[in-house]
Design a protein around this nucleic acid. Structure first.
Lengths: 296, 296
DNA sequence: TTTCATGATACCTATTATGCATCAGAAACT
DNA sequence: AGTTTCTGATGCATAATAGGTATCATGAAA
């Protein structure tokens, strides 16, 4: 015979009542059934859990230890059943979200915050990754939703624009262009450029460099930084100028001058991407949530 | 039907093998029995735990949640059974130990340390209390072992001397007696005395004052401190002198002069006390341990 | 003493779990 | 194409387990 949850349930009620008859009534079984269940439990444990006499029933030290542990086991069982049910209807679970430097700088934080308010049981697990990596991870089912630099046209995937970024030119205070209201791309032909992190920002430069070429020049890169803070730092100490997006510039401040680029109409879009079939429930909820963000 | 540990065990093996036939072999049951147990489990949960097809079996998200929780429940059950068995044979459990200021100052710490080495599964729960309180708590089964100021001759209790203390006179540096090698009790008749915490040290003064009376004087108390550190502090700033035990004096140092009292033969004993019947197993182990400390 | 309450036991029934034989569908091999 | 060989599911009979009723033994209270 094996110990089951039934034994624990009966034991705990008896440990509470310390009276076989009353406990058996609370359990809606007969008193002999309870007596035997406890006997079987004690036999299986090879431990006496109750001191019995005709006058009183009381827990032994071992019985007290079993009561604590048994209560924990029962609570754990209940919690597990509840969680499992909630996961099965999508009220709980994990959502694996990929993001780029650009997504995390603007749309994503607010989006995830609102999603969490609507679905507090769903844990968001963020994974940093460039666009190409995220697309691959979506295909490998390592990711549920990607936030990537678009536009994305992958067969088997849906996408939705969540953020548009305009390029902006950043120069240090005192720079020859610092007093301008705006610049044209061609004005920057002879400048030294500080470059963003090469791999992570590949998509951004895929967007930017063709624009420069159209304006008749190839940016002269003199420094490469590891992240956006690094770029702005290098610019502010006069190593050069840079072009990045408004949302990323919002993070930095001191000693820098932002200049709109008036002759660039193209925007860089960040899109949410997800598989078009067999969505996990948390993913479906996130997609529904994204769709609902139009009206809201 | 109710979910039992059997369902969890079967589920976990299947979740490992992801193959009904192999899992059923590992469980030493037939494949149909496993199939139906999982069906019952899913029916009871109202949750699909496995995606089945003829080609593959794999966990759903809910199944993964149930696997984690179920594993925890099973581990908890195993740990509980083990702990209960260990408690029942006295390998684990709690020992409620009472102690006085005098016991904690000398014999007790080393004793408990050695006991813990021999019985690492037994948690010692210390309770501070004066002798009278401890005796009452022993009678009320609120304490397993008391360390009290003796001698104790309580019917229904056994005791054993664990520590003997000689009284010692403490005077501040520069005191008229400070240059002596030792004093007689009678030399202190005209001194001002700093008194220990009245209630906690009642037994000590029950031992000390009769000795003074025999020496022909009644100590003149000018200050009462809350604990031994307070006593020594008051003495060192010249409020008076005091008499306490060597072990307690060992705690303090600066600015004080200890003087043996040469004409006092009586010692103050600290004893371990325990009920003589119906000992809990941890208590029995401690008593056996105490007895073994002779030879060691 | 009698009465009442306790927990334990005997015996039978109901429920549940299991094994065996078999089915149905898909893949792999001939 | 046909056959074999996996897969998991199902029907039915059996075994194991849990439960109910009646009753006993013992100690406390009336």
């Amino acid at each position: 015979m094996k110990i089951g949850l039934r034994h624990i349930r009966y034991f705990l009620v008896l440990a509470e009542d310390l009276n076989f008859r009353r406990a058996s009534e609370h359990l809606h079984i007969s008193q002999p059934a309870l007596t035997r269940t406890i006997q079987h439990l004690e036999a299986e444990l090879q431990v006496t859990l109750f001191d019995r006499s005709q006058n009183f029933v009381r827990l032994t030290d071992a019985g007290r230890a079993f009561r604590e542990g048994g209560q924990r086991v029962l609570n754990g069982m209940e919690a597990t059943i509840d969680l499992t049910r909630r996961v099965s209807i999508g009220e709980a679970g994990a959502l694996r979200v990929g993001y780029t430097d650009f997504a995390i700088a603007d749309a994503l934080p607010e989006l995830l915050k609102r999603f969490h308010q609507e679905h507090p049981g769903i844990t968001v697990r963020p994974h940093h990754g460039v666009t190409a990596t995220q697309i691959q991870e979506l295909k490998d089912d390592k990711l549920d939703i990607g936030f990537v630099t678009g536009p994305v046209r992958q067969p088997g995937f849906h996408s939705r624009v969540v953020q548009t970024d305009r390029p902006i030119c950043i120069v240090p205070e005192g720079h020859r262009l610092a007093s301008r209201k705006s610049v044209a791309l061609g004005d920057l032909a002879d400048e030294d450029f500080v470059h963003g992190p090469a791999e992570a920002w590949a998509h951004f430069y895929d967007y930017l460099f063709p624009l420069c070429r159209k304006a008749g020049f190839q940016p002269r890169i003199v420094q490469e930084a590891f992240n956006s803070v690094g770029i702005l730092g290098l610019v502010s100490c006069g190593m050069g100028i840079t072009i990045l997006t408004e949302s990323i510039y919002d993070f930095g401040t001191g000693g820098l001058v932002p200049l709109p680029i008036r002759d660039v109409a193209d925007v860089m879009v960040t899109e949410a991407v997800w598989a078009s079939e067999n969505l996990r429930l948390p993913t479906q909820h996130f997609v529904d949530f994204l769709e609902s963000q139009d009206s809201g």
